[in-house]
Simulated scan of single mutants.
Amino acid sequence: MKVNIEIDCTPVEARQFFGLPDVVPMQTAMMDKMQQQMMSNLDKISPESLIQTWFSFDPKIAERFQDMFVAMAGLGSPKKDKK
């Protein structure tokens, strides 16, 4: 014998039926806090501030970036031997 029971209810109704706590206020508070933190740190991830932070560590970093881009551009072309 096989019995199928189908219950049509919302997630809130299911939580209430099983006696689970209402987590909506906690989720709302956490999302508000995360949004506030993200908005306060938004200026730290702007391109200008990132470049300023990167270049403030090492005075030769500009040279290293240039060398890295030259090396990456050279990967696609075959190297010629100087004989």
Rank of each mutant, 00 (worst) to 15 (best):
M1A: 14
M1G: 11
K2P: 03
K2F: 10
V3G: 03
V3S: 11
V3I: 13
V3Y: 13
N4S: 13
N4K: 15
I5M: 04
I5L: 10
E6S: 14
I7Y: 05
I7W: 06
I7D: 02
C9M: 15
C9K: 14
T10L: 00
P11R: 12
P11K: 11
V12M: 08
E13W: 00
E13C: 01
E13H: 02
E13F: 01
E13V: 07
A14M: 15
A14L: 15
A14K: 11
R15C: 01
Q16M: 11
Q16P: 02
F17C: 10
L20P: 04
L20S: 15
L20K: 09
P21Y: 06
P21W: 02
D22Y: 04
V23G: 05
V23Y: 14
P25I: 03
M26E: 10
Q27G: 04
Q27N: 13
Q27K: 14
Q27V: 10
Q27L: 13
Q27D: 10
T28Y: 01
T28D: 02
T28P: 00
A29I: 00
A29E: 12
A29D: 05
A29Y: 01
D32M: 14
D32K: 15
D32Q: 15
D32Y: 09
K33A: 00
M34P: 00
M34Y: 12
M34N: 09
M34F: 07
Q35W: 03
Q35T: 07
Q36V: 01
Q36P: 02
Q37W: 00
Q37D: 06
M38V: 04
S40R: 09
S40N: 07
D43E: 09
D43Y: 03
K44R: 05
K44M: 03
K44C: 01
I45A: 03
I45F: 07
S46E: 11
S46Q: 12
S46Y: 02
P47W: 02
P47E: 06
E48Y: 03
S49C: 02
L50M: 15
L50N: 05
L50Q: 11
I51L: 04
Q52V: 07
T53E: 14
T53N: 09
W54D: 08
F55E: 15
F55T: 15
F55G: 04
F55I: 13
S56A: 13
S56G: 05
F57T: 11
F57P: 00
F57N: 12
P59D: 12
K60H: 10
K60E: 13
I61C: 10
I61F: 12
E63Y: 02
R64Q: 11
R64T: 04
R64L: 07
F65T: 04
F65R: 12
F65V: 14
Q66T: 14
Q66V: 13
D67Y: 03
M68L: 10
M68H: 10
M68A: 08
F69N: 15
F69H: 13
F69K: 13
V70N: 08
V70K: 12
V70Q: 12
V70D: 09
V70L: 13
A71E: 01
A71N: 04
M72F: 05
M72K: 08
M72V: 06
A73N: 08
A73E: 02
G74A: 07
L75F: 11
L75W: 05
L75C: 03
L75M: 12
G76P: 01
S77V: 06
S77H: 06
S77W: 01
S77D: 09
S77F: 06
S77L: 07
P78F: 04
K79M: 11
K79E: 15
D81C: 04
D81F: 10
D81K: 08
D81Y: 10
D81S: 10
K82W: 07
